[in-house]
Amino acid sequence: MGAVRRRLRTRLAGPLLAAAVLVAPGRALACAVCAAGETNNRAEFILTTAFMTALPLLLVGGVVLYLRARARRVHGAPPSPTSALEEPRRVA
């Protein structure tokens, strides 16, 4: 009896899993993005995608720029890379 049940379970597992994969997303519609195919919210979807893509870059970039400006203010401006190549000026 146990062996029959085990065999039945093994045979059913594959089709049941396939059915769950096919049916579940349609039933759940769990995330906001799943409904992005609708025409009336496509603009919002594109806008928020662009916003969410740009935001981390803007945040990290903003922090880097702030730290650079602060470093210049605290430690003084670093020498320019071309300054070593310039001819020393003669003071009369």
Partner: peptide
């Protein structure tokens, strides 16, 4: 936290648009 709130606002706007 800014990223967390940005995510929530984005999801809200998409649902509101629908």
């Amino acid at each position: 936290e800014i990223m967390l709130f940005a995510g929530l606002i984005s999801a809200f706007l998409v649902v509101k648009g629908l």
